[in-house]
Write a protein that binds this DNA or RNA. Sequence first.
RNA 1: GGCGCAUUCGUCUAGGGGCCUAGGACGCCGCCCUCUCACGGCGGUAACACCGGUUCGAAUCCGGUAUGCGCUACCA
Length: 511
Amino acid sequence: MTAPVRVRFAPSPTGYLHLGGARTALYNYIFARRHGGEFVLRIEDTDPSRSTDAAIAQILRSLREMELDWDEGPEKPGRHGPYRQTERQAIYREHIDRLLAGGHLYTCFHTSDELEAERRAAQAGKRAWVYSGACRALTTAEVERRKAAGEPWTLRFRVRPGTTTFDDMLRGPVEVGNDTIGDFIVQRSDGTITYNLAVVVDDVTMAITHVIRGDDHLSNTPKQILIYEALGVPAPYFLHMPLLFGTDRKKLSKRHGATNLEQLTAVGFLVEVVRNYLCFLSTEFDESMITWSLADLVAHLDVESLGTSASIFDPDKLRWMNGRFIRAMAPADFAARVQAYLERVGFYGQPPALRLLAAKGESALAEAIELGQLAPLPPGDDQERLTMLVAPLVQEKIEVLSDFIRLAGWLFTPLAIAGSAREKLTAIPDAQRILRAAAVCLAGLERYDVEQIEAAVRGLPEQLGVKPKSVFAALRLGMSGQPVTPGLFESLWALGRNEAAGRLAAAAGML
RNA sequence: GGCGCAUUCGUCUAGGGGCCUAGGACGCCGCCCUCUCACGGCGGUAACACCGGUUCGAAUCCGGUAUGCGCUACCA
C-alpha cells in the first residue's frame, strides 16, 4: 500500500499572500482533498530579516477566508511540528550532522566578497560561473586551524559528478548536468540554514509525498534531489505549476494594482470568485464554472491536467466573473453580502468612504482600508432597511460591490446637487416646473408603490407638455444629484414618499 | 554567459497529423433592448513566434533560432 498523500503549502511571510501563492495553496488543497490526503501549512521564515509576524497573520487570514483549512500547521498542531522554520533549528542541526558524517558537506572559507568578485569577473568575460569547489581540498587540520583563527566559514554541499534527473508531474522528465550546479551553501556563516536544505529536511520530516509549488522552484529541484540522495531518502513527486504574472508579464507586484486577496475584497470582489478565477487559469474554462463551490473545485479540478505556460492576471475577466456571480446569487444573499461589505469599508455613517471612492477610485479605497483609515461600522436601522431595499435594484447591473456605493450611495446621504449635475439640471427646459409637479404628484399618490410611481411619472410629459427625456432626467438629477442611478421609479420608491417628494421640491427650490 | 522551463487572437484557452479557410470566453467595436448607467441578446475584430526538416498532408512530430520567465545568492 502506498503512503497517504501529504502536500504542503510553504509561503515565506514577507508580505501579503499574493495571488500566485493563493493559487498554489488552492491547488495543494484540492490535490490533498481529491486524494483523501493531508494538507500542511508551513511557514518558511529562514530569513528573519524579511519575515514578520504580521505577514504570517495576514497569510493565515487570507487562507481561512478562502476556506483552505490546513490539517497541520500554525495554530493547528500536528505530529510533524513545529511548522515554522525558525523553530526547527534542532531538526536541521541533526540533519546537517548526518550529512557531515556521510561526507556530503565541507567547510568553505571563501567570503561572499571574494565570491562576488569572481562571479563578476566571470560575468564580464561572459564565462559561466559556479563555485570552484576549491575548499573541498582543505585538510581537517587546516580547517580546524582556520576556524580557530576566527575565520568565518560556511558549509557547502558536495555535488557529485554526473547528472540529476526527475520527472515533473506536469512537464515530464527534466535532466541537468551536475557540473552546472556548483557546490551550494547549506549553512551560512552565522550558523543558519539555507533554503534548499531547509525545504528538503522539512519535506522529509513532515512526510510530504507531493511537492506542488511554483515554476520558479523548478531550477532548484535538482539541488534538492541531490540532498535527498545524500540523506538516503526517496524524493517526493514534484509538480511545478505555471506562474502568474501581471499584465506586463512580470511577477505580480504592487504596481499591478490590487493583487492580493485583501485588496481585491476591499474593492468588492467576492472571495469565491477570486478563488475560482485563480483555479481556472491554465485550464479550460466554462461559464457554468463561475458559481462553483470549493467542493466543486475539488471534485472537478486536477492539478495534473493544468497547462504549462505562465498566465497573466486579467482584472477585466475577474470583474466580469464577479458580475456574473452576483447576478446568479439569491437576492437575499446578495443583500447580505452588500451589507457586510459596506460595513467593512466603513460606509455607514462615514461619507469619507463614499467620497474617497468617487474622487480617487478603487485603489484609494483599498489602500485606506488596508491602512485601517476606515473603521468597520454597522448600519443603523434605517440604513440596514435601505440597503436591503436597494440591493436588488443594483444586483442586476454591478460588477464589484463597491459599485453599489457608486450607483446608490446617494440614497444614504442628504441631497446635494453640485457641479456638472447642477449644470445638467439647469439646462433642462422647464426643470423647475417638472420637479414641482412631480413632487405634488408623488405626494398625492394613492398607493406609494413602483407601479403607481411609474404610471404617474410617465403621465407627466403629456400633462406638462414637455419631452419625456426631460422629465426622466430632471427627476433623476433632482432626487439624487447624480447623472447615473438605479431605476428611476424604483429609486423614488426606495426613498419613500416623503423623502422623494421632499427632495424633488428642494431641488426645484435650488433653481 | 551557463542551465532549466515556456511560446495559438491584447488576455484566459480548445486543439495532441487530415474534422482547422483554427473553436470558445474576457476585452474592444457595432446593432437591438432602454428613463440614465448597466444588465441581457445578436453580430464583428483579432492568433498557430521564426526558419528548416519528417510526411501525400503539420498549429499538432523533430531540429535550430528568437523572445519571455526562472535558477545561477551566505533570498525564499
